[in-house]
């Protein structure tokens, strides 16, 4: 049965492995190149707090951007591909080609066929996701040390930790269920792509509620000093301690800024701070990285189990 699983799905397995290998080489190459660049161009004492180091950081940031564009779409595209090419054909293609009547009338019972295929392929998908996460985690600090972490940027957040594995598994389970329902590959593929995109948008909205946001009251500035925090919302706090969305009764005039200047806004903020107003920010600090990772993975894992269970139930109820 393991051989059958390998033989039927080796194209997907080899392609995914190949993709990960190429990506690994690419990341390794860019990291080595960046290190050489730093070694060749860094003034003495860099990287470090010296002002001269800033220029180096900017240059590294530019190099990072060039490579980043390669995988900016990966958090969305990779799970969609996994769902479309690992999940959707698993049952959809069998039904479409009528081969389910071959596969499920051999001595191996249907439930075992499903159990082996689902566990082997889900295992491979999770392993692939973890490998991707590992590679990205090793590579990113080379460019981004001290610039941002992997928490505030949702795209990066979905590429490190356990997130890729959870997303890949989720897409695989969704694709499998779609294949079992439609009994055709193409509509199942379409549903996976739409489903993964919709889920990503939904979880992005939901992620603010994974934990009670931390609150900070600022005076003199409206910028949180932690660049990687996830901002949830902000409000002005009147001297009386009441939070208002719009401090209209403050008497500070707000004039529109022209062009890219923010002079008027800054003047307005200074006026507010002078009158005793404070700026309250609700945010999630980067220390919550793992809590968020596991919460999201938990949701996706539960959904995967539900989809997988439904697909199995549907298949066993009417295999023909």
């Amino acid at each position: 049965m393991i051989w059958v699983t390998w033989r039927q799905h080796r194209a997907q397995i080899l392609l995914t492995a190949g993709f990960l290998a190429v990506l690994g080489v690419l990341l390794l190459g860019s990291a080595v190149e960046a290190r050489l660049y730093v070694a060749g161009h860094a003034p003495p004492g860099c990287p470090g707090p010296a002002v001269a180091c800033a220029e180096l950081e900017v240059a590294l940031g530019r190099r990072y951007d060039a490579v980043y564009s390669v995988f900016g779409w990966m958090p969305l595209v990779l799970p969609a591909l996994i769902g479309a090419f690992w999940g959707a054909p698993l049952l959809g293609r069998e039904y479409e080609r009528g081969t389910h009547r071959l596969a499920w009338t051999q001595s191996v019972p249907v439930w075992r066929w499903l159990a082996v295929k689902l566990s082997v392929l889900a295992g491979a998908v999770v392993a692939g996701g973890l490998l991707l996460s590992l590679m990205v985690s090793l590579w990113r600090p080379v460019f981004r040390a001290g610039i941002d972490s992997s928490f505030g940027n949702i795209g990066v957040f979905n590429m490190v930790g356990v997130a890729p594995a959870a997303w890949w598994l989720y897409a695989f389970a969704l694709g499998t269920l779609a294949g079992a329902v439609f009994r055709r590959t193409l509509p199942a593929m379409a549903l996976v792509v739409a489903g993964v995109a919709a889920t990503m948008a939904a979880l992005f909205g939901l992620s603010d509620h994974y934990a009670e946001p931390a609150r900070a009251e600022l005076t003199g500035t409206v910028v949180l000093d932690d660049v990687d925090a996830r901002l949830v919302r902000a409000a002005w706090v009147e001297p009386s301690g009441r939070e208002v969305a719009d401090p209209a009764g403050s008497g500070c005039p707000l004039r529109a800024d022209a062009g890219r200047s923010s002079r008027n806004a800054e003047a307005w903020q200074e006026c507010l701070f002078a009158k005793g107003y404070r700026y309250a920010m609700y945010y999630h600090p980067p220390s919550r990285f793992w809590r968020f990772q596991w919460t999201e993975a938990g949701i996706l894992l539960l959904a995967s189990a539900a989809f997988g269970g439904l697909a199995v139930h549907r298949t066993l109820r009417r295999p023909g």
Binding site: Q8, R97, G98, T99, H100, R101, L102, T105, S107
Partner: peptide, 13 residues
């Protein structure tokens, strides 16, 4: 044991 051959003679192409 029963063995079955469906009408379209399904095989993995």
């Amino acid at each position: 044991e029963a063995a079955f051959v469906a009408q379209d003679k399904p095989l993995y192409d």
